[in-house]
Design a protein around this nucleic acid. Structure first.
Lengths: 137, 137
DNA sequence: TTTCAACCCGCAACTTGGTTGCAAACATAA
DNA sequence: TTATGTTTGCAACCAAGTTGCGGGTTGAAA
């Protein structure tokens, strides 16, 4: 189990230290993107700055990507696309204004946008806000 | 000139006080969305919390809408659609990772998304990040 | 016109997510 | 073993956003 995670990290060019494995495992085990604070509380053994530095490493090596939830808070999820993680591969997310959860809408694909001349896209954040199926009464 | 702004506020159900007119005028006079801090520095006479409270009022009455820029900072722009400000009317925005400016991409329309059953959309945030035409070398 | 309640505003203090400096702990190669 | 670089935890810090409070303004009823 940990072997997969070590391979994942090494493939991304990151030395698999204890903290990095813990954070990566937590992200892999979650079906929704997690914020810095959510990770910090799930992994009581790790300190905020440690989680932050692991996330920075993973981001810099393209092993995860960050999305903004509905309130300006960053959430992180494993990048499954590997090297081919171009803007057109991003999917939409849904933020529930009642329960504050963030969902991955894997079915709602985001088309590569048509940009005016001179603009270059690096990433896309497509966030839909509203009420989720659990909170709808 | 101020008459238009007062009409705009009253039409939204907001009493047109001095601060509200100042903030609304600043938003109307800008071609790009502005953040709380940007408004605060442009309007030296107003204090941060005053700008914040005006923005909260305008938001609650649907006179403006908020978007997240690329770093989790909210930016605000006048809602031109009036009452018909449904998700399908939102346009995309572009955040330049070099100069930190946010552009309105009025031409890139955002289609009303297909959501799973039970989900209700209230708003959409479609932010493209990259390098703008001024920063491209 | 006076009075009173409601609203508006500025100040200061606070919360929270994100970030960094530093020194101790650890790994690694010579 | 020693020397060098990396990783980590702690504490401190920063910036955006938010709130309590007291003073000021407004506007309508008496």
């Amino acid at each position: 189990m940990n072997k997969e995670i070590e391979d994942f990290l090494e493939h991304a060019g990151i030395k698999p230290t204890a903290n990095r494995i813990i954070v990566t495992k937590a992200l892999m085990g979650s079906d929704a993107p997690l914020s810095l604070t959510e990770l910090e509380t799930r992994l009581q053994t790790l300190e905020k700055s440690s989680v932050f530095r692991v996330l920075s490493q993973l981001l810099a090596h393209g092993a995860i990507h960050a999305i903004e939830d509905g309130r300006g808070i960053a959430k992180y999820e494993i990048c499954h696309a590997g090297d081919a993680c171009t803007p057109s591969h991003f999917h939409a997310h849904f933020y529930c204004e009642r329960c504050q959860r963030t969902f991955c809408l894997d079915d709602v694909k985001v088309a590569e946008p048509e940009l005016p001349a001179g603009f270059t896209a690096h990433s896309v954040n497509y966030m839909i806000k509203g009420i989720c199926h659990d909170c709808e009464q």
